[in-house]
Amino acid sequence: MSLAIDAFTIICVAAGVFFYVAGTIGLIRFPDSLSRLHALTKADNLGLGLVALGLLPRASNFPDAFKIIMIWVLVLLSGASAAQMIGRALRRGRR
């Protein structure tokens, strides 16, 4: 059982780290701000989501697990809002 949990954590966190690395490469390599924003949100949403998912079975009790989920939800909320605002500012600037 603990082996299965370990394997689950390793797979999820590794997948999360993959998205973080991919997002970072995109942030550095993509040509314009909108594409960079796109890369960044992948890292935040999927990367952090998978890391949080992988850490869930390690939480010692329900409140801790709930806090891990809430961290992800809050980052989703602020990340998505910030991306929208930056995107809008970019469009205004281009006109």
Binding site: M70, L74, L77, S78, A80, S81, Q84, M85, R88
Partner: peptide, 15 residues
């Protein structure tokens, strides 16, 4: 303000 900021300002403060 932009809709996104308005949405954030209505959702975030209670939490």
């Amino acid at each position: 303000p932009s809709d996104a900021l308005l949405f954030l300002a209505k959702t975030l403060p209670p939490i």
